[in-house]
Amino acid sequence: MSGDPLWTAVVVASVGCYLLKLAGLSVPAAWVEQPWVARVVDFVPAALLAALVAVQGLTTEDRIVVDGRLAGLAVAALALALRAPFVVVIVLAGVTGAGVHLLTG
């Protein structure tokens, strides 16, 4: 991808995210505090973050690919379940991914 579309995405998404924050401080509370709005917003991160875990961990372009990333995810999940701090989780996942890469060539 050339530089320009990347810069456009970076700036448009940044300005958009800022305006979403500003809107919260600016709009009448009643607009956003509809029960269904609050409920949808409460659950959007779980759906999107899980989708990103799956896409980043298991796919390459339009295919499902199983490689060291899945092993890294499994180790990360175990570390998170044991309440390891973020940096430990990340390092363990990285070491696992690198190990699988070395073993499988």
Partner: peptide
């Protein structure tokens, strides 16, 4: 979008 709700 959740930052909007935080803002409110």
């Amino acid at each position: 979008t959740r930052n909007t709700v935080y803002g409110v």
